[in-house]
């Protein structure tokens, strides 16, 4: 029986995936912390309302909302951008693995990576309103 390397044969790609995960977390955390600090300076003295979830109460529930908020310099939109970078990090990781499997000509795993990406893409599209 053939034994496969646990990682990808391309060790450099394994490092790329490791670095991608690390930097994704660092960048998103920096964005969240800096904009969070400004948010607290601006509205820290207000009273929060998290006791009850309101349908439509969250202003940032799509990429368009966030982009619109960013161009209007809304601090909360910047925090949400940081959160989105974090969510995108593991998804980007699948892309890099896909490239790795292509280089190795492991087409079975190219398909498996595409299936996982497809499932996430489907959930993205199904959530888009309108």
């Amino acid at each position: 029986m053939r034994i496969h390397n646990p990682g990808l044969k391309d060790r450099s790609l394994q490092n790329v995936i490791g670095n991608l995960l690390r930097w994704g977390v660092i960048v998103s955390l920096l964005v969240v912390l800096i904009s969070g600090f400004i948010y607290l300076l601006q509205s820290g003295s207000q009273t929060p309302s998290y006791h009850l979830f309101e349908e439509g109460g969250n202003p940032y529930t799509s990429l368009t909302d966030v982009v619109r908020g960013l161009s209007g310099s809304q601090t909360l939109a910047f925090i949400q951008l940081g959160v989105l970078i974090l969510i995108a990090t593991p998804i980007a990781r699948i892309f890099f693995a896909l490239i790795g499997f292509m280089k190795e000509k492991d087409y079975l795993y190219v398909i498996i990576s595409l299936v996982v990406l497809g499932i996430i893409a489907a959930s993205m599209l199904s959530g888009v309103k309108g």
């Binding site: 998290y50 969250n58 909360l76 593991p90 959530g127």
Partner: peptide, 16 residues
Amino acid sequence: AASAVVYFHRGYIDAG
């Protein structure tokens, strides 16, 4: 991340 995408569109992910 797969769940978060759904939660995000539903408004469960509050930035603050």
